[in-house]
Design a protein around this nucleic acid. Structure first.
Lengths: 196, 196, 196, 196
DNA sequence: AATGAATGAGGTTTCATTCAT
DNA sequence: GATGAATGAAACCTCATTCAT
């Protein structure tokens, strides 16, 4: 088994243990037992416990980042709405494809410590900024309502995070397409039909 | 200083330390130093570290629970929209009133361990159920769009959690009323004006 | 309630707690709760935990010491055998009269620490010396077999300690007179009827 | 050094520290210092302080149990008296061979707490039962005096315990064979030659 | 004299990390 | 490269004792 495979094997098992136990309750012992390696071997591949956890999170960030594609409001071949829906679909799909990592992202990595909080914030800010600029762009074209695009971005992100959190933590049993369409509908029209 | 005051003093300082450091990095030593008491005194008032943390979270749950009032769709004196907005306002206000606890709720208490995760889920489920039944009620009266009320509840909760998370973690500088009206608007109409 | 009574009340309750839990597991808290006094009050009457325990043991030593009466081999009115039996009877009676203290003596006070071990040894040595000198006296009068009187003393003491230990620890249900006569018989004639 | 040796090394040093200080005053720090290992290493081999102490006591029980051999009253090649004496000899020898453990057994393990008391009682009861059945057997053959065999067993056990206690605690300087013969003589004929 | 809240020394145990083999 | 025994820092918690009221 070559270095890369071995790394991946450790990474995968660590991910499962982190997802099952949470960061602190995940012991190196359990990770190496799951990976079928000796304790010392772990440290040949990862500097420390924190490092492997960060790598798991970072990889997830990369995968999620790749799922998000800038909406091209001028592309005549693909409707803006479709592009947005595609984005949602890809993100939801990436999260569904690896529930253990999703759980880590939405639960275990949260509130680990100030440094990690920062890392999460940076990622969410990056996603938020991307979304925000798309929204601003959309506002100029009249396909996004007037209002603070940054707030829209935050609220949208939160809505998506929460439903995935429920799926992963509670085992909420919704099929992917359903979740995608619900989110899309929610972002499109909200649900309140009242005056205040 | 009587027992109740002393308890409160410890509770308050512990809350700040937890908010600053996160659960695990918060050391009993720092809490007692902040409270200006001896280590032993701490254990006179709280069984252990976990207990005081739970108490902080439970108190927050109670306060938040009290902030939520069932929407009365038949009250002719208060428009439904106003009642909903009032709810949002009260919740946001409760979270704003104690940012340290809000940070604990939205960050430190998350992913602590499976038992605590369950506690959070139970609370969010209770809030969700309340919201959901209001929404179903609203749907019958035509003031809430057709669709899965449970999903609406989850998405709404997530949107609110996220914006408060940003306020508390990043210091997003939005005044309370602004946040309230943004959320209301978001829930009312979403922002996308596109077909897919 | 005057000082002496209060002291006695604490002493009695402490004795029961020590007997029930053993020295280390007996907490000052449990003692004061049993005595119905405040924690601080305890220290008005006893210097520390060790001191009250020592006092309990010392009192027992005094009572037991008083139970032992020198055997007068020249008294024509009381047979030596009767006098010895009387001694055994008084000792056994004293131990039976206060099972809690007996348990403390034979169990809790044992192996507490080197200093306390010394105290026990000193007491047993005093008893042993007394017994030994009686035995030497008896040997001169031909009513005690030849052999090392010191060893006889030790073996006799051990036999008595063990049967009382069984009575107190296991609840061996033997009536006092039975125990007295069994011991007497044992010391008189042993039980083996074999050559080696 | 392999695992078994290392365990033994820790066990031996712990035994000495327990014997020197008593259970509670024996600190893990002193044990590991004596064994020349780090604190953590101790916990690699033993679950906790209690566990290593129990193991020491249990090992002693096993060794002592092995020393006791059932007396065969029908063996024509070995006189019953000789067999009994052999038993005493083996037990005394086992206790002499490891004075530190003997001290632990007769002093430190006594009155540790109710659970441990129970353990000791169980062991002494097992030995007592064995002895008792031999005595009953002996009574049927007329080589043991009439009387309560159980009481005989208890008294004999106590006599042996006490003399070993004196040897180990006070450094009573009696050679092994002397102790064996004194006990045998004592069990055979007692020492009182009086009527009551 | 009585109280009981406060103290803080001290000990056990855990577990991430190192390093000799 | 792999191993796993060894390390030791670090943290929680207990509980006998003190002392202000």
């Amino acid at each position: 088994m070559d270095k890369t495979e071995r790394r991946l094997q450790i990474l995968t098992n660590a991910r499962d243990v982190f997802a099952k136990r949470g960061y602190h309750a995940a012991k190196i012992d359990e990770i190496v037992a799951a990976a079928g390696i000796a304790r010392g071997t772990f440290y040949l591949y990862f500097h420390d416990k924190r490092a492997i956890f960060e790598e798991i999170v970072d990889n997830a960030f990369v995968r999620l980042g790749e799922a998000v594609v800038r909406v091209d409001t001028e592309d005549p071949t693909r409707a803006v709405g479709t592009q947005i829906e595609e984005n949602i679909r890809r993100i939801v799909h990436a999260l569904f494809a690896d529930p253990a990592t999703t759980k880590i992202l939405l639960s275990d990595a949260v509130g680990l410590d100030p440094a990690f909080d920062r890392k999460l914030l940076v990622f969410y800010e990056a996603v938020g900024k991307l979304l925000e600029s798309s929204l601003v762009d959309g506002q100029e074209r009249g396909i996004v309502a007037e209002g603070d695009a940054r707030v829209f971005a935050i609220l949208s992100l939160g809505a998506m995070k929460e439903i995935m959190y429920q799926v992963v933590m509670r085992g909420l049993d919704f099929p992917e397409p359903r979740i995608v369409s619900e989110i899309f509908r929610f972002l499109s029209a909200g649900y309140l039909r009242v005056a205040r």
